[in-house]
């Protein structure tokens, strides 16, 4: 039984404590924007924010973050998230789309910590998010575009 605050709402999860947050979000809360891609923290499709920092939900047992604050793609707010999602749409980053929730989470986390990232900063922050469609050229461009929007 783990208690979490998910997207601003307090929830008590009646699942085994070793249940990965990913499956609790999807199966218990129907928050399906967070995706399953590998289950071993290699692809980043399951990235959410836990206590404000990006986290791979597939290797995060709910019991290990008892009392934590979880934010998923469905509730991403704030200037960075907005700038990222607008940039993503404006230059049509997504292809199949499966990985993009995770990409958006990682990009938002980067911009929250670094408003003017270089190409290298982007590579370092985003290297854990696999896109099998290889939309990487546009991901990089969209993060730069979002950074420009934020700088005004």
């Amino acid at each position: 039984m783990a208690k979490l605050t998910v997207n601003g709402e307090e929830v008590t999860l009646d699942v085994p404590e070793d249940t990965p947050l990913l499956w609790a979000l999807r199966d218990e809360m129907r928050l399906t924007g967070t995706k399953f891609g590998c289950g071993i923290a290699q692809c980043g499709a399951c990235t959410v924010m836990v206590d404000g920092m990006p986290r791979r939900s597939c290797v995060t047992p709910v019991g290990s973050i008892d009392g934590g604050f979880v934010e998923t793609i469905e509730a991403m707010e704030g200037p960075e998230a907005e700038a990222v999602q607008n940039a993503w749409t404006n230059i049509d980053v997504p292809q199949c789309g499966w990985c993009q929730s995770g990409q958006v989470m990682s990009a938002t986390a980067l911009l929250r910590m670094n408003r003017v990232p270089t190409d290298e900063d982007i590579d370092n922050a985003m290297a854990g998010n696999i896109c099998r469609c290889a939309t990487y050229v546009r991901i990089r461009r969209a993060i730069h575009d979002a950074a420009e929007t934020l700088e005004g």
Partner: peptide
Amino acid sequence: PKVDSQAKSNGTAMFTMDVY
């Protein structure tokens, strides 16, 4: 502009695994 870019940037696009 692509019709599916927005839904695929905000988590609302529905895939098979998202069906409950």
